[in-house]
């Protein structure tokens, strides 16, 4: 038995992934600081601007995050076969079958290996589409809070959130969604890598996945 190599993830998708991962870490850490500054709060004469520095990083990372989300939406439409949105949503019988078998495998009921599928399983794909959507709301909330006087973001934000304070509340709550997502995502990636030796973890660095091939 041997393996054949398949190029699955384009450079843009891999860049998107790491921009997303990096910006989520930076945004969460600085976001927690902005919410509840933890540095010594009675220091004078240090010449430091901790809140401004954190806000600067937060906004910079926010732009990176925005770029990442935009890239993923581009790939949903114009990406390769694995990256397109129609490959990851339960809209065809092939995808629905994959969703059911994935759920079975995650519950340890069946042994699951979809030989004709190189990209995401459908459960993961649905989660990613949800995450991109949540990311969009997070971006709107972020710009709404940062540029409250801009009539564009004000119109947008007031329509969705009603007020600055409620926008801030949603912005903070959705941050917890991303932390929850990160935990489950990392666990399931490792779990899948252990179960199916197709090189899932390395594929996000190299873009390549592997498949069994029986040597005749």
């Amino acid at each position: 038995m041997t393996y054949e190599k398949h190029y699955v993830w384009s450079i843009l998708l891999r860049l998107y992934h790491w921009a997303m991962a990096g910006s989520i870490v930076a945004l969460s850490v600085t976001g927690f600081y902005i919410f509840n500054p933890w540095t010594l709060t009675n220091l004078e004469g240090t010449g430091l601007f901790p809140m401004m520095t954190m806000r600067y990083i937060h906004i910079l990372a926010g732009y990176l995050f925005t770029g990442a989300i935009a890239a993923r939406i581009f790939l949903f439409i114009f990406g390769n076969r694995q990256e397109r949105i129609c490959d990851v949503l339960p809209i065809s019988s092939r995808n629905i079958k994959n969703l059911i078998s994935t759920l079975g495998a995650y519950m340890y009921l069946t042994d699951h290996h979809d030989e004709d599928r190189l990209g995401h399983n459908v459960l993961a794909g649905m989660t990613y589409v949800t995450t991109i959507f949540v990311g969009l709301i997070q971006i709107i909330a972020g710009f709404y809070l940062w540029l409250p006087e801009s009539s564009f973001w004000q119109k947008f934000g007031d329509m969705i959130f009603g007020s600055q304070q409620f926008g801030r509340y949603i912005h903070h709550l959705l941050m917890w969604y991303f932390l929850l997502f990160a935990l489950i995502h990392i666990y399931l990636v490792i779990w899948n890598d252990l179960k199916n030796p197709d090189g899932l973890v390395s594929s996000i660095f190299t873009g390549n996945k592997f498949r069994h091939r029986e040597v005749k």
Binding site: P37, T41, L48, M52
Partner: peptide, 9 residues
């Protein structure tokens, strides 16, 4: 005070 991280706790 906000920018310089000085807050009433």
């Amino acid at each position: 005070h906000f920018d310089e991280g000085r807050f009433a706790e």
